[in-house]
Design a protein around this nucleic acid. Structure first.
Ligand SMILES: [Zn+2]
Ligand SMILES: [Zn+2]
Ligand SMILES: [Zn+2]
Ligand SMILES: [Zn+2]
Lengths: 140, 140
DNA sequence: GTTCGTTGTGTTATGCTATAACGTGTGGCA
DNA sequence: TGCCACACGTTATAGCATAACACAACGAAC
């Protein structure tokens, strides 16, 4: 099974940097890490990120203006098929001390939001759920 | 206008602009609208916004880098006291066509997120929930 | 194989968002 | 009076994102 469908060179480089990183990275940080690989301009990063996000193998954290590799790229979780280009709504818990990010999803929350939307005839396209706080390791 | 305690002049001006607006406003848009009132620099807007948000009478929309007046400032909803300086986690439905924002909260979602956090000993400080999509009026 | 549209790429310039750093003024209070 | 906390004003700078243009690579259509 091929988990990574035909990434271009730039997309692979960006995904690689994201995957290796413990914490989310800003586009400009990614750029700096890829200068030795030939990257010269922000747009090279943003274009790669756009595609990776579109494919569902990277995510943007709105509250940080940063990006992470998807933690579920090759899983199918809770019996829901989950890779292949896009997955459902996902939530992030972000530690404000160590920067670690935990990606998860919760069908009860999804259902609740979907219910709200249906009642009001609102058609969701993208949902952001981000919890900022302190992880267990960083609490005193 | 504002039943709110002791806002400074700049804070009142910013809140007023937000309240009158149908859609979220960026800090720089607010600045432009307040030039005639003497505003000259972004920081004047950001400082006022910081306080308003801290008081819970304005909100930041992370996915838009924009700001709205709180829709619940003077309500106590679902039997939960709700004004007075800060209220619980709130969600936003944002129409990508007309820009209209609908602020709501859902205790089931709150409970779910709180449960997730408790299980992992994660201590939340601020939670962002934003649904982008199309409102009923804007659907074809 | 040539034509042509699509997609990725490279580069420069620009615009939008947010904060640092420093200084002033005002009101409350010992 | 002296002090402190806090709002305010201003300039400069940092950080995030896209517009606009040009070129190369690829595959499908003819
Ligand atoms: Zn994911
Ligand atoms: Zn941590
Ligand atoms: Zn509110
Ligand atoms: Zn709409």
């Amino acid at each position: 099974m091929n988990t990574t469908p035909n990434l271009t060179k730039n997309q692979s480089l960006v995904l690689d940097v994201l995957t290796r990183s413990e914490a989310p990275l800003s586009a400009y940080t990614i750029l700096d890490k890829l200068r030795d690989s030939g990257f010269r301009a922000p747009l090279q990063v943003y274009r790669a990120l756009d595609k990776l996000i579109e494919m569902g193998i990277a995510h943007r954290l709105e509250s940080l203006n940063s990006f992470v590799a998807c933690a579920h790229a090759n899983e199918s979780c809770c019996g829901h098929a989950h890779g292949h280009g896009h997955h459902g709504t996902v939530a992030f818990a972000i530690c404000e001390s160590c920067g670690q990010v935990n990606e998860f999803h919760d069908h009860a929350i999804d259902d609740r939001l979907a219910g709200w939307a249906k009642e009001r005839k609102f058609k969701p396209s993208k949902t952001t759920i981000e919890i900022r706080g302190l992880c267990e390791a960083c609490m005193h």
